[in-house]
Design a protein around this nucleic acid. Sequence first.
RNA 1: GGGCGCUUAACUCAGCGGUAGAGUGCCAUCCUCACACGGUGGAAGUCAUAGGUUCGAAUCCUAUAGCGCCCA
Length: 932
Amino acid sequence: MPHELPKSYEPGAIETRWAEYWIREKLFSVPTPPEGETRPVFTLLLPPPNVTGRLHMGHMLNQTQMDIIVRWHRMRGFITLWLPGTDHAGIATQMMVERQLAKEGKKRRDLGREKFIERVWEWKKLYGGAILDQMKRLGASVDWDREYFTMDENLSRAVREVFVRLYEEGLIYRGKYIVNWCPRCETAISDLEVKHEEVAGKLWEIRYPVIGTNEFITVATTRPETMLGDTAIAVNAKDDRYTHLHGKKVLLPLMNREIPIITDELAQPEFGTGAVKVTPAHDPNDFQAGKRHHLPQIDVMDEHAHMNQNAGPYAGLDRYEARKQILADLQAHGFLVGEKDHTLALGKCDRCGTVVEPRLSEQWFIKIKPLADRAIEAVESGEITIVPDNYRQIYLNWMNNIYDWCISRQLWWGHRIPAWTCDNCKEVTVAREAPVKCPKCGSTKLEQVSDVLDTWFSSGLLPFTTLGWPEKTRDQAVFYPTTLLITAYEILFFWVARMIMFGCHFMEGHQQDPAIKKASGWADKKNDSVPFRQVYIHALVRDADRQKMSKTKGNVIDPLEIIERFGTDATRFTLAAMAAPGTDIAFSESRTDGYRAFANKIWNAARFMFMNVDRIGFVWNRVSDPVKPGQGPDDSSGAGVSSFNPQTLEDRWILSRFNRVTAEVNDALATYRFHEAANRIYDFFWGEFCDWYLELIKPRLNFEEGADKTQAEISCGNLVSLFDASLRLLHPVMPFITEEIWHAIYEGKPPLKSIALAPYPQPDERQYDLNAETEMAILQDLIVNVRNLRAELKVEPKIKVPIDLFAPDAAIRAMIQQNRGAVERLGQVDKITFVENSLVRLAGARSTARFDVHVLYERKIDVAAECGRLTKDLEKLEKEFANNQRQLSNEQFLAKAPEKVVEGLRRRAEELTLLRDKIKHQLEELNRTGPK
RNA sequence: GGGCGCUUAACUCAGCGGUAGAGUGCCAUCCUCACACGGUGGAAGUCAUAGGUUCGAAUCCUAUAGCGCCCA
């Protein structure tokens, strides 16, 4: 059956087809491996996107990298599980639905809790799958049979179990503390959910009259409205300016309340006036100071950040309205004594951007220190490695300065806290299931606490809850700890750190199936409670101007639009090729356009191959193809290109090069150097395979009457087997085009359902051929020099020219002689004449260390241009030579530099002398014969 | 305030102790029977600045400037 492919590659046509095929055929579904399984395992948890999410470049990068690593492992014979799912995203989702309600003129309270949650579920059903559908377009090879949602019943049960256990262990407590409060979302949020922003603000100075004196104490504040809740003034004990006021009281302006002057470290003498107001209910530092001095806590705001009844005449005002009013009143009564410009870091809600208010409220917390200690240990001991390495330190710094985690949220959408309050005695009972009666007073009037848990509480448990925890399952024995986590720096603390803490705590004592652990290469790891063995933190994708993408800036690049225009493969390749670890990616379309061209190049190389396959009537011998699924990473039986039968220099050369590139690509992937892997393949396929190998074998393929048919078949076979191997090498990065061509090679009857299940190429050292590589380099050098001379002599492209060649080394002469056809074809040469003497004195000649070549053509060369070029070359050589000699005459260099380097420089010196003399001669000759 | 990163060809980026690289763009030329999303040839960089370490620095150290990020 002849292969018919369109002349140019159209990704849109094939990509959706394969994406659907992979899902329909369940190619990436992984059943639980039975006892006795000895193959290596690779497990990766997809960072669950929010149900509210739309695919952005960050996801695309993340998923591209994961898919590359996952496909690479799968092709190397690992049992490879990539687990997908979505996160219920408490605040974000609730906001979406609230917004929807707002359009109908309703608020969530109008519906009531139950109806509202029903509404969210409806919303989730309708829109929640959007991001996963987008993911499918990327070709992500996840196990869709294991897809989860963080609010699934089994996961919810696990969440309750975790909560109860932590509570019973005394690691969860409830209390009234200062938390970050978002007045718009009407909920507490964690420190991590507050984003600080530098803004130009004011610093106001207010003076408080000291009772019993005619003195004043002046304090500075950026939030004057909180003064209504002041319960003390603090000065530093060491500050002599205030010693005489110790023990005295001041009269709080506007409120006419007497409050004490206390001494506390909170007041720093060198800062401002050295005295500070203390507002325990509205500032975390003041809260601590208040505890130390047993000060009352006066809350002056409500949950909407409006002043409450404690604010006296200001009750009911919005916080900023109140500020204005208070400043005016202070001014009027002579208490306001200064106003300065001041830049302050304003905390804003990560979700909605509203300015956060520190607020005293009853919340649930996790006592983090005991959990953090083990999580620190896991990273410090190397049980978990973080790549790039610098994130390790960042992680440790954070963990060492961690605060208790506020886990309760005053939302409706999320995992409701499994705690019940007794209506009668107010006793709070924490339990797995709703208690029938209060254990303290026996009352049956119990109401569940209305708060829900922070979204990250449940996602922090995913590495084990998705594997069936709290039951002990075979899945856990096999797949836990997961092997790798690939994620963005942004959620290192939100998510990664918490998974480590929870994993180390709840999976303590867990042991992975020893046979599988060993086969997977983790035998040296002692701790199987960690949620993953390795963490790879990927870069941020910025726009072409290095700006962080954001909706407000309007510079968001939509990956789906890029995919539409250039194809998924090209987009994936771009992200891979630009993903040098530790550096952010400035996404540039021109690069993607370049990689679309690469896809087209591959496509056309395939067309070329099929054209010859069809013409020769070649039958691809499937048996000899090294397709052995399921071989382990150490099994080298499929190594190299086993069905390749090298006959000629170019055969030996390309085979050697393929094996070297294979080694480099495998190494690069093993250390997450995606850019290196992508670039190696690109250079090989385009620069070596297409530009040289395909050109070189054309004469052997173009068999006509009287030609050697066997040779044509052998080279056709070599072409196909090398192409097949190259496709497998490239597959993890460009899954679609490789799948399409691979199936075409097998004329729709491949030995496996997908190239994704075929083995990944491994280098075979026996197929390295240094001689072939050296000889090929000389041949390429010769051809390039001839082309170069032709261009300079302005020889018409179609005209073939004779050349003279001086090559003193007999072996090189023989090699060129043997490959003269290549020189003739690729250099447009019609006759090669070997000569006895150097050709450097001739115009229109080039020389290298190994040969001189002269193109015979009647047209005179441009003497001035040639002189210019040679002079420039000479300058460069002289400079290098001078440098070279300086080093070689330096005794310290000779004494200290490694032998290899010295030897290299010596050889280079010889070459340089030779080249320099040749150019000098050429210049002399040109000056002698050429026009002035 | 603390911490981190970046500054290499016009643009976007690799390289991170031993002779400056890629892609795009640019110039010239060629629609040669896989590919003009192509071939061939070419031009283009005191590797931010100033010191230091070293036989040798784009690469290591220190300082400065500019840009950016994170944490408080």
